[in-house]
Simulated assay, not measured.
Amino acid sequence: MAHKVWSGIAAGVFCLVAGVDLATPATTVPTAPAASSYASTSPYAPAAGVGVGGADTTSTQQVSVLEVIDGDSFRTADGLEVRVLGIDACEAATAGGRRATDAARSMLVGATVVLEREPGVEDDRYGRALRYVTADGRDFGEAAVVADHTAIYTDGRNDASPTRQATLRALDTNGRTCAALPTSRRPVPVPDPDPDVDRPATRLPAVPDPAPAPSSAYYKNCAAAKAAGAAPLHTGDPGYSSKLDRDGDGVACVR
């Protein structure tokens, strides 16, 4: 009898516990959200290595400058054409452009520079890489806008960050002067009015020897010519006379 009682109690406890378990919701283990699949066809979408929100894992690179194209663009040794981001130099064909190009060459040619991306900005419409440029520890754009041949870029959309633009605007106190050379520069030499100065000299015509002056000498005879030390007399000599040249050979008073 006692065995049956304890068996009944045990069965009741089991049913109670089972009922509690079935009534309690199952615990859910949290899982990590799926990775973002950011993709955009915008020309200003982040480049490879640039994460969503501007996290740039490949924002800078070192390159060697091969040649300067003008005051705000250059070509690297590996063939990359770079347009300096945020600035606008005078066109190369102007006087200001020549100054800007000379300044860029002195700072960049042959140097190893650091290119820095602006997150979300890659190339301009000509396919040139838009980059901030640092040469020998100096920001090239900031150094350029201080001069009067380069200004902050305003001809359309400036893709530099607002902070960079504010810095450039504060430094750009004189804008651009592209057409005229400053008064301190040496004036352009006046062209030579005679473009043929280097041609061979023209030989002047030969001037004939002047005709001998009429002779004022007169010898009465050969004795007088010999006494004067003029004999013998040849045709054309002062004092010559056919009267003194008896044989007519052109020589008078031989003896």
Rank of each mutant, 00 (worst) to 15 (best):
P187F: 12
A45V: 09
T101Q: 12
D136T: 02
C253N: 00
V251H: 02
T112H: 13
T41G: 12
R203I: 11
D148Y: 10
L168C: 03
T31G: 02
Y126D: 09
S36D: 11
T101S: 15
A211V: 15
W6N: 06
A252M: 01
L130Q: 02
D78M: 03
S36Q: 05
R75Q: 15
N158Y: 07
G239P: 07
I87L: 04
V68I: 01
A104Y: 05
V133K: 02
R246P: 00
I152H: 03
V188G: 05
A135N: 01
D139C: 01
L80S: 09
P119Y: 07
L168G: 01
G53T: 08
D88M: 07
V197W: 10
V20N: 05
T41W: 00
T31F: 02
A217W: 08
Y153Q: 09
G141K: 02
K220P: 00
A92M: 10
I69D: 06
R186T: 14
A111Q: 15
D198M: 10
G236P: 03
A201V: 15
P119F: 07
G71W: 03
D172Y: 05
S36C: 09
G51F: 04
W6R: 09
G54H: 09
L130M: 10
R186S: 10
A151I: 01
V251W: 04
A206P: 14
Y218A: 13
G79D: 12
T150S: 01
R185P: 00
G86N: 00
M107V: 08
V251G: 01
G156H: 11
F14Y: 00
R75D: 05
E91H: 04
C90I: 07
P182D: 14
D247L: 04
P187M: 08
D88F: 08
L115Y: 05
K220S: 12
L66S: 14
T235Q: 11
V20T: 13
P214D: 12
A47H: 09
D245W: 10
S241G: 14
A201K: 13
A201D: 15
A211H: 06
D70W: 09
A217V: 04
S36N: 11
P238N: 11
V114R: 11
G127C: 08
K220Q: 10
D245P: 07
A166Q: 14
R246E: 00
P46E: 10
E81C: 03
R125L: 11
N221M: 03
R83T: 01
T163Q: 12
D196W: 10
G137W: 07
R199L: 15
H3R: 13
Y219A: 04
P25V: 11
D136P: 02
D247S: 03
A47L: 08
G51V: 06
P182T: 11
A166P: 06
A34M: 06
T101K: 15
D155P: 05
Y44H: 12
G236D: 00
L66E: 14
S7C: 12
D21S: 15
G96Y: 01
R138C: 04
N221R: 11
V17I: 15
V52W: 13
V65Y: 04
A228C: 03
A77R: 13
D72V: 02
T235I: 14
S36Y: 06
L115W: 05
L115D: 04
E116V: 05
T24W: 13
T154R: 15
G156F: 12
